[in-house]
Amino acid sequence: MRLSRLARGILGAVTGVILLVIYLPLMVVLVNSFSTSTSLVWPPPGLTLEWWGRAFQSEGALEAVLTSVQIALIATLVSLVLGTLISLALQRFAFFGREAVSLLVILPIALPGIITGIALNNAFRTILGVQLSIATVIVAHATFCIVTVFNNVIARLRRLGTSYEEASADLGAGLWTTFRLVTFPQLRSALLAGGLLAFALSFDEIIVTTFTAGAGVKTLPIWILDNLFRPSQAPIVNVIAVVLVLVSIVPIYIAQRIAGAEKVSR
């Protein structure tokens, strides 16, 4: 489809405005992380690297980073296992209620985070009688991280079909051997992309985490929220926010490159 010069100009202008609205606040945070002021002011009165040095020496921030990484890694691992198994069950087997199960698997990512958080908080504390801790945060994150893995894997399974697996079975391979030698190698890039997205989703999650974390559990987003309006902490919070953005961008970028490489290869 070819657009007129006027249409291209309007489309470019609208795109530019949308990108400006999205990314200008991020640029303000980036610049303020180098500000000499101890409060959130614009424009900054001067520039300094002092806050970056303090941020990487902050025990609270570093501990929060390690907690977020730990939770994200375990939640991603759980999501990879469960998301793959659910995808195989729903795509390779026919059974009563399959569509309903598929809807229930995807639903957590569509629900507002505050609803998910309240529901899980009630389930842990009143129904199961479980003390809120890192374990409850991991379970909570896995409920929506599974969806990213599930969507990637089931889309790949639909494109692959069953011909290779049927050929493997005809040659005498069992179910596990077929999965290990035939199915899994074809799913590796989808699993990697889904796992990276799940990690990014878990790493910067705050709403569900707030409702499911115990008193001593501080992830990086919660640390940022707690320190945002404390005296002299605003520049350090800006530094941590920039690091959080970079950490979130990397896995999403890699996942996008993987998807793009697969399109080109096909």
Rank of each mutant, 00 (worst) to 15 (best):
L107R: 09
L132V: 02
I127H: 02
R159N: 13
P221G: 10
W42M: 05
R188F: 11
M1K: 08
L85K: 03
R2Q: 11
V101Y: 04
P25K: 10
F229Y: 12
L220T: 11
G83W: 04
G83P: 07
I118G: 08
S265P: 00
P235M: 07
F229P: 01
N151L: 15
G214E: 01
A7E: 08
R180D: 00
G129I: 13
Q131R: 15
F179G: 01
Q186D: 03
P251G: 11
I236G: 04
L228K: 12
A190R: 07
L201D: 00
R92M: 10
L228A: 14
A200P: 04
F179N: 02
N32Y: 06
G129C: 06
Q131E: 10
S79W: 07
G60A: 10
R5C: 04
L6F: 09
L160V: 11
N238K: 08
W223S: 11
L171Y: 05
A213H: 02
E99P: 06
A142L: 04
G46E: 04
L19A: 15
F96V: 14
R2T: 14
I134C: 00
I206G: 01
F56M: 06
T143W: 01
T143N: 04
I224K: 07
W51P: 03
V14E: 01
V81P: 00
L197V: 15
G260E: 08
I74Q: 02
I224L: 15
V237H: 04
M1P: 05
L49H: 03
P235S: 09
S68P: 10
R230W: 02
G129L: 05
I18S: 05
G12T: 13
S35W: 05
I252K: 09
I109C: 01
G53E: 00
T212A: 01
S133C: 01
C145E: 01
A13R: 06
I115N: 03
F203A: 01
L244C: 08
L47C: 03
A119N: 07
R2A: 13
I249S: 06
L82W: 03
V69N: 04
I224A: 07
A193P: 06
W51M: 07
A13V: 15
A123W: 13
V29W: 03
A173C: 11
R92A: 10
V137N: 00
S202V: 05
R257Q: 13
P185C: 10
W42S: 10
S202M: 03
S4H: 03
F93P: 03
K218F: 13
W176Q: 01
L80M: 14
I109G: 03
L24M: 08
R8V: 11
P25M: 09
V105Y: 06
R2M: 08
M1S: 12
T76W: 08
L80D: 01
F95H: 09
R266Q: 10
S265M: 11
A155V: 13
S37I: 03
V208Y: 02
P44L: 07
R159V: 13
